[in-house]
Design a binder for these strands. Sequence first.
DNA 1: ACAATCACTTGATACAGGTCAATAAGCAGA
DNA 2: TCTGCTTATTGACCTGTATCAAGTGATTGT
Lengths: 252, 252
Amino acid sequence: MDNNLVVHEQLASVQRCSHDYQVSCGNCRLASICLPLALENEDINKLDDIIQRGKPLQKNEHIYREGDEFNSVFAVRSGTLKAYKTTDDGREQVTGFYFPGEILALDGISADIHASSAMALETASICEIPFDALEKLSSALPSLQRHFLQLMSREITEDQQLITLLSKNTAEERVAALMLGISTRNTRRRLSPTQFRLAMSRLDIGNYLGLTVETVSRVFSRMQKLEILRVDNKEIEILDTERLRTMASLGS
Amino acid sequence: MDNNLVVHEQLASVQRCSHDYQVSCGNCRLASICLPLALENEDINKLDDIIQRGKPLQKNEHIYREGDEFNSVFAVRSGTLKAYKTTDDGREQVTGFYFPGEILALDGISADIHASSAMALETASICEIPFDALEKLSSALPSLQRHFLQLMSREITEDQQLITLLSKNTAEERVAALMLGISTRNTRRRLSPTQFRLAMSRLDIGNYLGLTVETVSRVFSRMQKLEILRVDNKEIEILDTERLRTMASLGS
DNA sequence: ACAATCACTTGATACAGGTCAATAAGCAGA
DNA sequence: TCTGCTTATTGACCTGTATCAAGTGATTGT
């Protein structure tokens, strides 16, 4: 319990830094994993000029909704977001979770209309990057063009991994893979790879992984019993990364 | 039976046209749905200059394999291909089928290594587009840059649709959606939307849709009994597009 | 501080689709 | 044309996860 509090405080303080409206790409601690990656200082300023920083989003607020006109892509500065589509019969499909440094709305480029909705799972701040300006700047800066194409390609490979997960893996394997994924992304962001708070509900997790809430809950309970995870509501501690990894890659 | 033969002949003759090695983007009948889309005549020639056309691939030949160095993307000129990944435990996950006019290997950009393998499901011819040259040309031709980004974005939205399909839909709905998808793509390519020959095996279909061969086979049989499809081995005729559509969108 | 609502857990039961098995129909090579 | 091999179909049975149901624990707004 006390432990959890400590983690909260760490997370909160780290995130508070970047809540600063005046932050620029040049001094953003996420620059090394976000769009500016691979840009020279001088070029970062050019990118900086086109980026708009708005006021933080509250929990459950949308950045954009499916069907909205597409004008910008968005970088997460702090907080966690989910992207989701609404199916013809009104149900929801979560297509991804987005953490600081990651880019949203890449699926809107194809039809000039957002193909999914994006909602904050907790208080979050984002950078808006007008797409027209980004395109122009990309033409002039080959390394930015290259990096942006790589980001899009990464989105494709990640979607394909999810496809494989949904198509081939058991409930246990899916949950294990998600926990490992979050752990890895935390490492990149210099946060603890073994202790974190899930911003998303069991419903969102289940929805993302193609499982019901009940199944997700049962898997968590089972993993706790096996002493692979410690689960205290949204607070997760990975106790045995090795066994978790084995579990995720089909117990081979 | 006789009917099927006629369809074969039509397909074969259409494909024979584009088997011509000397074809250029300017006179390729797929120009309107492929990369040249949105380019002026003069610019098409520039694109043409960087494209390499090789000799046709035989059935089961690979264009590239997962892990190969990434240098080019590929456009399908004729035939059908599948892209697939091999999972850690050695199983296969088909991530997509590719028809004439469609672009493969977009998932290789992110890590400069092909993230999947691509195999011909029947005799096929392809255009190789060296990526470095395409990047340079894109910087100079905004409409090419835009179109290429749109292609990548389309790949993302298509993957997301597959994610939804795998996560939410029954076996019947998945197969129905695939048949409709092929029908739609055939329309774009000015082929019959109601009669076609599947280049892929039941195994590939099942693999793509997260189902076993047996289930795919049973679904086909059921749809035949309901007089929605006529199935004669790989030959498919859609008898009732409306009911097929209802089936695909969750019987609502 | 208190409802009232919402999120999560756990158990009992049902069913879609997987697995195993046997057969039939295509197809490639001799 | 025959042979052997691969692919597809069909049936019987089994299992993992959904569904339904009940209860407990969080969170939110007043």
